[in-house]
């Protein structure tokens, strides 16, 4: 930034909280991660002023790639107004003074927890995932020394044993989120706890996808236009979730839906988990079956304004 420009952030801290040395170290890890898609790069993660497990990995990655002129969007569960998304957005407003937005298409960097936005991403955008557990094999093998060997030698048979067990027991694969993927035909990778509904969006995506795990101190990445294949069997292919319902507010029938309990007699409605996507559709005149219902509209209004006491 130019010297004459006034700092727009809290000057008690370096731009984006981390010092420049730390950012350079993290950028080197990110470059390595992009060069070896799906490989978990250990990095000297720092303690952040937000708790481990609350997005410290994603925050460090965002802090290392963000510039003063970038526009940031932060979502949690697909929504811009969930508490932790608000908290992280406030953090970057304070320590980096960047513009923030709720519009997917306007954002240069989108930090996310548990979802990929419904609107397609474009070249030049960076999607930063918060990752609680980067190791897809961890539930099968607790030891890091062993899982690193399994990745090194591409010994992934055990992961298929898990899927086999699902089919033997239920007749179908019962993993619904954190559904493991093979990246670039080489590394088994955890997509973070996104629903498997979102897995196909990772494949061949024009945006850069970066994954930060703060507590476990790992960074990994999917470069643009990279092959990302969800694990499956030839005769039991991968299937994302589907709904019989469509969004009660905007009528979308191709988005991930959250269930909203309306009363204590089993009454419920389904609405888009991606709040911006839903608003955008309603602004364009789309209406769902409860689109004119006062209760549903009240919900939509509360959701839009992010009111909670």
């Amino acid at each position: 930034m130019s010297a004459v420009q006034e700092a727009r952030w809290d000057e008690a801290y370096n731009f984006a909280y981390l010092d420049e040395q730390t950012k350079r170290m993290i950028r080197r890890s990110i470059l390595k991660a992009i060069a070896v898609p799906g490989y978990q790069v250990p990095f000297g993660g720092r303690e952040m002023p937000l708790a481990y497990g609350w997005g410290t990995g994603g925050i460090q990655v965002t802090a290392s790639v963000i510039g003063p002129d970038d526009t940031l969007k932060v979502i949690d569960q697909g929504a811009d107004d969930t508490t932790n998304a608000v908290s992280i957005r406030r953090f970057f407003s304070r320590v980096a003074g960047v513009e923030t937005t709720e519009a997917t298409e306007e954002a240069d960097i989108i930090q996310t927890r548990h979802r990929i936005p419904e609107a397609p991403l474009r070249e030049g955008q960076v999607l930063v995932y918060q990752v609680p557990q980067p190791e897809p094999l961890r539930s099968l093998e607790p030891r890091e020394t062993e899982t690193r060997k399994m990745h090194g030698y591409a010994e992934y048979g055990l992961m298929h044993v898990r899927l086999y067990e699902d089919i033997a027991r239920y007749g179908h694969i019962a993993t619904t989120y954190s559904y493991p993927v093979m990246v670039n035909g080489r590394y088994l990778m955890s997509p973070s706890p996104i629903p498997k509904f979102d897995n196909p969006k990772m494949q061949g995506n024009p945006a850069i996808q970066l994954f930060g795990a703060g507590r476990e101190k790992r960074i990994y990445a999917i470069p643009p236009y990279t092959s990302v294949k969800s694990l499956d069997f030839d005769d039991h292919p991968f299937e994302p979730q589907t709904w019989d319902e469509s969004c009660a507010l905007c009528g979308a029938d191709n988005s991930y839906l959250d269930e909203v309990v309306l009363d204590d007699h089993g009454g419920k409605m389904f609405v888009c988990s991606d709040t911006h996507f839903c608003e955008d559709r309603r602004a364009k005149g789309h209406r769902g079956e409860l689109g004119a219902d006062p209760a549903a509209l009240a919900f939509a209004r509360t959701a839009d304004e992010g009111e909670a006491q």
């Binding site: 497990g53 609350w54 949690d76 569960q77 697909g78 969930t82 508490t83 932790n84 927890r113 548990h114 979802r115 619904t176 989120y177 954190s178 706890p193 996104i194 629903p195 498997k196 509904f197 979730q241 991930y256 839906l257 959250d258 269930e259 988990s273």
Partner: peptide
Amino acid sequence: LPHYVDFQAEL
């Protein structure tokens, strides 16, 4: 933290 996307998937 909210986990309702994953909880929805499990539901």
